[in-house]
Write a protein that binds this DNA or RNA. Sequence first.
DNA 1: ATATATTTGCGTGCATTTTACACATTCTAT
DNA 2: ATAGAATGTGTAAAATGCACGCAAATATAT
Lengths: 230, 230
Amino acid sequence: MHFTHSMRNKIQLTVDAVVFGYESGNISVLLVKRKYEPYKNAWALPGGFVLEKENLEEAVQRELSEETGVKINYLEQLYTFGDLGRDPRGRVVSVSYFGLVKPNAFELTASTDATRAKWFSIKKLPRLAFDHKKILKIAIERLQGKITYEPIGFELLDKKFPFSDLEKLYTTLLDREIDRRNFKKKITSLKVLDELEEKVSIGRGRPASLFSFNEKRYFQLKKEGIIFEI
Amino acid sequence: MHFTHSMRNKIQLTVDAVVFGYESGNISVLLVKRKYEPYKNAWALPGGFVLEKENLEEAVQRELSEETGVKINYLEQLYTFGDLGRDPRGRVVSVSYFGLVKPNAFELTASTDATRAKWFSIKKLPRLAFDHKKILKIAIERLQGKITYEPIGFELLDKKFPFSDLEKLYTTLLDREIDRRNFKKKITSLKVLDELEEKVSIGRGRPASLFSFNEKRYFQLKKEGIIFEI
DNA sequence: ATATATTTGCGTGCATTTTACACATTCTAT
DNA sequence: ATAGAATGTGTAAAATGCACGCAAATATAT
């Protein structure tokens, strides 16, 4: 099919962001309450129309920032959803993105397209606008799949953390118990953690050494990819 | 950013198909020669504008069929390219797809957008239109990555084939030698091949048993995912 | 002060998987 | 008949994965 200038199509392009947060054993996702029709007052993924003069990444960062105040330095493209009828306004194709943050690092603001932005546990989700339930489902699968081929945690844990925090992150993401000793051996063999001198004591029990990710090594592993079966 | 009806955007949406073929130790990709400006007479990935009333998958199948005559039952979404300036006609965002076929199964036709469609070895590529070189690069990475987490070959080999064909496919994709004995053990343990009674003798050497993929098992493994280190 | 519960921090042996490696078999071509 | 070429199989060593138990360091209860 050859298009000429007179045959301008009427397809609209949007971006949507699936931003996951993690805090003490709980995975959450960032949603906004819609201000306008359609789906007015329903919860939805942050996102909106792409402007003619901005890249897709710029668009999703802008929408995320406008609607929630969250700024995130790395969003990865997830999938493009373009089925007919996914948006009552007409033909709307959405490029979805995927990111990880520490929820406590941001104060949520609500402005432009949202009357409210809020973190929801992925176990207690509200009804979602459009096909956002489907998008979120695919994003969750990606999140769980990711940990088998790249290291994870840098974006979700504090700068310094006890080893048990990393362990808890993995058990939460995998939704099952893991053997601490073997897990530690595995992580140690990756040489991705630096053990610090500091120790921290939270409540009772033996105080834990603090660790930090070795950023260089971490991003090298991300790039190279790892096969990482827990 | 909230859009109203008066603010219709001018972004155009296209789809592009990266179709890989394999034949006796050679990986090829399907390209078309452009009939119109821009990049008139340059080689490009098959693709074109998405119509308002068709899904993305339908669009890419249609374009592929129109431009090359190739029909393929499974195209997987690869990535969406939306950078400013990737198309001189204005803002054009392209959703790219990825597929595998046996090149000899089709007679290439050339019609609508193409004066010619042709298979090119991925080692001897011509200059490509738009950012299609970049798209192809990402597709090749995906192709090589795929074989580590799912079985491959069904779409690329004949119904019946000697084991050496599968071995050659893998050495070609991985671009290195593999140990035939260990490779066979691995494949056998997956129980994805059915050994047939037939034997075939091509040229000299001991005749080889023919195998076929056990389709049920093959697609089960594709779905489940495998960790498959050669 | 002492005992108890709780959490962290290792190490060892067994089972499984991966890897390296060589020679016999069966055909074609001469 | 013989040489050459491709297929087809087994075994041992090494590496990795996995199950598992106990000591160390602290908070809390008595």
